[in-house]
Design a binder for these strands. Structure first.
Length: 621
RNA sequence: GCGCCCGUAGCUCAGCUGGAUAGAGCGCUGCCCUCCGAAGGCAGAGGUCAGGGGUUCGAAUCCCUUCGGGCGCGCCA
């Protein structure tokens, strides 16, 4: 380690400090971005001197070091560019030293030193963290917002399609996961600079809604006094009873002794409308609202000439991507009704799919895939740059063909990211909740939300990576203990708010607004716990950008948990060491500084929780 | 048979798109507290990142392969 320290370079002394009133906007205050830009500019200088070739400067990263004892920021640039630098630098360390020398002249840098194989560890002047806190205090709404992602990915119009449950009944818990995931992702992308549309694709065209209509018709007859038996294959749930009653009220006996072909469209429309109302209510209970509900039926409509599906297929045909041909039979067990016939196929293999896919059924009607092609073409035509589809994991086999379709439809301009959500296992105290399949007797999303509340449902569904199965324990998620992540994070916020209240008790004239507290003597924050909190707060913009870029809102939930943990730990130190408590009635300046730290903490916790759609309570009840 | 997802502490899971000594909670062990700054605190043990090969300064992460689990596999949506 001695060698590492030997190559360290000290920064300029305090004369170089920036003016304390210099505060960048909340969405600009990302230390990691700032230093990425500085190091990129240093490297450009070396290039200008002819000692480095052209480099892809997006390749290196500035990140928190593994161990906070190493410094505040770490950079791998010298190692990443080792190969390109060989002509003028014998080792990565040599290039790293050069970068360190330049960095040491840079504003706000205390030390910059080389470690290990060529890491650059940067220690910042405390003033840099004060700037971060001031940004969060003065512009809490925008702190953490992504100003402009380096690769330009987080901008433009994004369509997030999620839920898209069949309109055949109330939502169940599995739907709820996709719903919460999609909504939080949309929040995150909007916060990160994208123009976001939340969209729901209503599968109201297939055989399933015909089944729904027949089921509703039975309930209609029941409402008119008949005793009914619900045959296998129809939907037995009670939720169709009101539909039947309404039909009886509005149509009397008019739909009774008519052929199915006559009553079915009427009953179907009524039933779908009723089911969508049901689903919208379920979504509203989770505070989810889609901007667009897109009906699959509109794609099939030929009343005004060729349907949107016809048009989409024609469009692909003109590109030479549709042909009549035969498909090899599937490997393994052959389906019973397999027949080798010529059919209309889309060349999805040109875009990475395993086989070409059928667009028409044997009766000439379009496949589900054909409709989905038309739907995605519509989204592309509406000008979206990025499409995100949130599906259940059982649709995994469908991902490649849809990606192929979007690539074909947009000449590879638009990207499609399909996020698969795994199953949710409902538990109570570690025991699985029995979900009996008979008589449509399943646990609905609504029942769960009513029992444990929106916050618990939303947070727990986001406190797991989307493609990992989730055990949802109805008892644990409302437990008031450290083991319950929802409580832990919300409690951190409530506890922070309580500090503000206590500060006011000690200093009744203390101005607790961000504007006032930004003027506090933040240089008095010198305890390791306080610095640790500051560092975590400084990492918020980076966490947001990473979560948004990866389309992974769970990272926000984990970040908030870690931030809370740092806060709780520091709070607990105040028990044994009263001088570390946030409020100290005899030290006004110190208290102001600490309260400023706490207020910026509430800003970040509030911001993150808002993205997840979870409330940030002022106190726990 | 093919494709996709997954395999990380006894359990449940993170691991910031290739970085430094792989983390957290539960459980376990040992101390401390019983304080309204409450809904406990601190510390410790615990790992062949499923196995094997490869790519390079560097791999839990990327490629190949084996094993094990989940999902899907023309005209269901």
């Amino acid at each position: 380690m001695g060698a590492d320290i030997a190559s360290g370079v000290r920064g300029r002394p305090h004369s170089a400090k920036p003016a304390p009133d210099h505060v960048p906007a909340g969405n600009q205050m990302n230390l990691f971005d700032i230093f990425h830009a500085r190091i990129a500019s240093i490297l450009k200088g070396v290039q200008a001197a002819g000692r480095l070739p052209d480099l892809d400067l997006a390749r290196f990263v500035v990140e928190p070091p593994k161990d906070a004892a190493l410094g505040d920021l770490a950079c791998n640039a010298a190692m990443v560019f080792a190969k390109e630098a060989k002509a003028h630098f014998s080792s990565p360390r040599e290039l790293a030293v050069e970068i360190c020398y330049a960095l040491a002249q840079s504003e706000g840098v205390a030390t910059a030193e080389v470690a290990g194989p060529g890491f650059i560890n940067i220690r910042l002047e405390p003033e840099m963290f004060s700037q971060v806190l001031r940004a969060a205090l003065l512009d809490p709404e925008n702190y953490g917002r992504v100003a402009r992602s380096r690769d330009g990915a987080l901008q433009g119009k994004v369509n997030v399609e999620f839920v898209s449950a069949n309109p055949t009944g109330p939502m169940h818990v599995g739907h709820g996961r996709g719903a919460v995931f999609g909504d939080a992702l949309a929040n995150l992308l909007a916060f990160s600079g994208c123009e976001v549309t939340r969209e729901y694709y209503i599968n109201d065209a297939g055989a399933q809604v015909d089944v729904l209509a027949r089921s509703a018709h039975l309930r209609y007859r029941e409402a008119l006094g008949e005793t009914i038996a619900i045959p296998e294959g129809l939907y037995p749930g009670d939720y169709l009873k009101p539909v039947g009653e309404t039909l009886a009220k509005t149509h009397g006996e008019a739909l009774l002794d008519r052929p199915e072909s006559e009553w079915l469209p009427i009953v179907k429309n009524a039933a779908i409308d009723a089911m969508m109302d049901l689903i919208r209510d379920d979504l509203a209970a989770l505070n989810i609202r889609h901007e667009v509900f897109f009906s699959e039926r509109t794609l099939h409509d030929r009343s005004k000439g060729p349907s949107l599906i016809d048009n989409a297929i024609d469009w692909l045909r003109e590109k030479g991507l549709v042909y009549e041909g035969r498909l090899p039979p599937p490997k393994g067990q052959l389906p019973d009704d397999w027949e080798d016939r010529e059919q209309t196929l889309f060349r999805s293999t040109d875009f990475g799919d395993d086989v070409d896919r059928a667009l028409k059924k044997s009766d000439g009607s379009p496949t589900y895939f054909a409709a989905d092609i038309a739907y995605h073409k519509d989204k592309i035509d509406r000008g979206f740059d990025t499409l995100v589809d949130v599906w259940g994991a059982d649709h995994g086999g469908y991902v490649k063909r849809m990606g192929a379709a979007v690539a074909a439809l947009s000449d590879k301009r638009v990207s499609l990211d399909v996020k698969l959500c795994q199953l949710v296992k409902l538990m109570r105290n570690g025991e699985p909740v029995k979900m009996s399949k008979r008589a449509g007797d399943f646990v609905t999303l609504r029942e769960v939300v009513d029992e444990v509340g929106v916050d618990a449902v939303r947070f727990m569904m986001l406190y797991r990576k989307n493609d990992a199965p989730l055990d949802f324990d109805l008892a644990k998620v409302i437990e008031q203990s450290k083991d319950n992540a929802v409580f832990y994070v919300q409690y951190a916020h409530a506890r922070a708010k309580s500090v503000l209240r206590q500060a006011l008790t000690a200093f009744p004239d203390l101005d607790l607004t961000g504007n006032a507290l930004a003027k506090a003597r933040l240089d008095l924050l010198t305890d390791e716990g306080e610095l640790q909190l500051s560092r975590m707060i400084a990492q918020y913009p980076r966490a947001i950008e990473a979560a948004a870029a990866a389309h992974e809102p769970h990272r926000v939930a984990f970040y908030l948990h870690e931030l809370s943990s740092v806060f709780h730990s520091h709070w607990n130190r105040g028990k044994d060491q009263p001088q570390l408590r946030f409020v100290n009635a005899t030290e006004r300046d110190l208290t102001s500084a600490r309260v400023a730290l706490v207020l910026s903490l509430t800003a970040v916790l509030g911001s993150g929780l808002r993205l997840l759609g979870v409330s940030a309570p002022d106190e726990m009840r």
